[in-house]
Design a protein around this nucleic acid. Structure first.
Lengths: 147, 147
DNA sequence: ACCAGGTACTGCGATCTCGCAGTACCTTGG
DNA sequence: CCAAGGTACTGCGAGATCGCAGTACCTGGT
């Protein structure tokens, strides 16, 4: 317990990295018309193909209401299509439209140089860092799940 | 270039971890009356003692206008005091009041169990992860600075 | 001493976030 | 088969974020 007890504090460090990363992405993506968070949401949709709003909320660690307005916005842009879920008619399946995927690809092109620069700056620590992020996600999610 | 080319993507991983962490902190801190971001700002203020709004903005990687409304809010709560900077009268020095520090300490008490749980979940990878976060912050900030 | 061109901050307003309360639908016990 | 009690989502509205444009002040060149 030294002078500054939380000089080393994983969660605070994550917060710092998180803010810096979001700022970096927002700036890199500015000309694409997507924010960092929107880009993230589109990316999840690209990877998963088709999700319910709840599943997207889980990925984003965001409240249902927030995801609801995201989807409304994306749909208004013509980037997302919603189809009533036949099995559970309270819910729906969300998919990116061709225009949505195109927008995501264009944003990814802005994103790539930033990513490349970060990877370069990391040098040969990259694998270790990547590993740590996975580890961290596991740890955070575990704690989050029982809160 | 495989099926899912960005399955491994440092920035996307950070985004995921960031969202999950913010959610975890927001929930852990809910009863303290501070959000994760506010807690972060208070923490920076505690560490640094006294900052100009610009310096705080830099720490938070947030735009000046956002920091401006943060400070207005904090001041209205009686948690922050602003003193005109004698050397540069456009600026000011921001300090936490005793009430502000007290609030931060109370929030930290809510924060600690979450941190401890994450550290436990990380097990003996903790040091490695911590190291990676530092590394990452350096890399991100470097790229950010020349954008 | 002055002015031209920064830099630090803030008011305003458009837009976004998210809690609350409501609607629609599903599930389970009886 | 029908409550009663969940669960998925959304409208609304309070409050937060942040770009733009403005004010106050600083600095370096003349």
């Amino acid at each position: 317990m030294a002078d500054r007890p939380d000089d080393v504090n994983a969660l605070f460090s994550i917060w710092l990295v998180a803010r810096a990363t979001t700022d970096l992405l927002d700036r890199a993506l500015a000309s694409s018309g997507l924010t960092a968070d929107e880009y993230g949401a589109y990316s999840v949709l690209v990877r998963e193909g088709s999700l319910t709003p709840s599943q997207l909320a889980e990925w984003m660690a965001a409240p249902a209401t927030t995801v609801s307005s995201y989807l409304k916005r994306f749909e208004a842009r013509g980037h997302v299509r919603r189809a009533r879920d036949a099995d559970d008619r309270r819910s729906s399946r969300v998919t990116l439209t061709a225009a949505g995927r195109r927008t995501h690809r264009a944003a990814a092109a802005r994103f790539r140089p930033a990513l490349a620069a970060v990877v370069t700056a990391l040098g040969d620590d990259e694998a270790r860092v990547q590993q740590s992020l996975l580890r961290l996600r596991g740890a955070i999610d575990e704690v989050r799940s029982r809160l």
